[in-house]
Computed example of a mutant assay.
Amino acid sequence: MAQFLSTYFLVLISAQLVKSSGVFELKVHSFTTSNSSVCKHNRDCDVFFHVCLSYTQDVISYRLGCSNGTGVSVTFSTGQSFISTCAPISVPFNLRQQGTVSVIIQAWDAESSNEQPTENLNNIGHFATKINLTNSQKWSQHVHLGEQSELRLSYRVVCNKFYYGDDCLSFCRSRDDVFGHFTCDNAGNIICLPGWKGEECKEAICSSGCREEHGYCEAPGQCKCFEGWQGPHCDECRRYPACVHGTCEHPWQCNCEEGWGGLFCDMDLNV
């Protein structure tokens, strides 16, 4: 039975990891119980903890396979009291609303013997409280007292990779491709790479002096001219084709210099 539950919890956690934006981490520091039914055979006594996050208003409500987030610890071989040094229990979640959620922690003991190879699960502790799910690197310390047990723990909320904000719902992932050229700061804000600008850093910054009304760039440092303009900075107009002794102020003009006339400014008026 214990093996079935562990497998069941692992399947749930794997499914949650796909869609989760944050992780609720809980450390069990110590657990003490006066329950006489714990480890009554005094051999092969294993204890593990199941943690559930729930958005229900009733903090006592609990159903196996909590859909809002669930996690299970490793199994400890122990007696009626122990101090834990194991890694935190991780509960993936998607915070759908800021504020308070219910945390339900259940302690289980699984006993087996050579005469009875099947395992029996006994609930030896039930703790429920409400917390504020807010992203923080600091651990909050708590002591929970049950009818026959005491649980000392700490918890924190951390965002998954690429997620930011108090609610872990702001997504930012550095990239340098056609969809954007940027990195992310510690708050998840987009920071354009050198040579790029715009809301998603898709616009290249042209070379210094480039007349952007007459030219453009596809990569940083370029200055490609629109039709009718030329020069390193795209600030020189192109004359009408075949214009000989003329100038232009706008593309395709042929304004004759003094002493010249005709469509192409090729007629000497002094002759």
Rank of each mutant, 00 (worst) to 15 (best):
M1H: 00
L5Y: 15
Y8C: 02
V11L: 13
K19E: 15
G22P: 01
L26A: 01
L26H: 01
H29G: 01
H29R: 02
S34M: 13
S34L: 12
V38G: 01
H41A: 05
D44G: 13
C45I: 04
D46Q: 15
V47R: 03
H50M: 15
V51D: 00
C52F: 02
Y55L: 12
I60L: 11
S61G: 01
T70D: 12
T70S: 10
G71C: 00
V74W: 00
G79H: 09
S81F: 08
F93P: 03
F93M: 14
R96N: 08
T100H: 07
S102H: 08
V103M: 01
W108M: 12
E111P: 07
S112L: 11
E115P: 00
Q116Y: 07
P117I: 09
L121Q: 04
L121Y: 03
L121I: 06
N122L: 12
T129V: 05
K138S: 13
Q141V: 00
H142I: 00
H144K: 05
L145K: 13
Q148W: 09
L151A: 01
S154D: 08
V157R: 00
V157K: 01
V158Q: 09
C159R: 01
Y163C: 03
Y163D: 04
L169N: 14
S170C: 05
R175S: 14
D176F: 12
G180F: 02
F182L: 06
D185V: 03
N186V: 11
A187L: 10
I190H: 09
I191Q: 15
L193P: 14
L193G: 01
P194M: 03
P194F: 04
G195R: 02
E203M: 11
I205P: 07
S207K: 15
S208K: 14
G209H: 03
G209R: 03
C210F: 02
R211G: 02
E212I: 09
E218Q: 12
P220Y: 07
G221R: 11
Q222I: 01
Q222V: 02
F226H: 09
F226R: 14
Q230C: 09
G231C: 09
C234A: 05
Y240F: 11
A242D: 08
T247V: 10
P251W: 09
W252P: 03
Q253W: 03
C254M: 05
N255H: 04
N255G: 07
E257Y: 06
E258C: 11
W260T: 07
G261R: 11
F264D: 10
C265E: 12
D266P: 09
D266I: 02
D266C: 03
M267I: 15
D268K: 06
L269T: 12
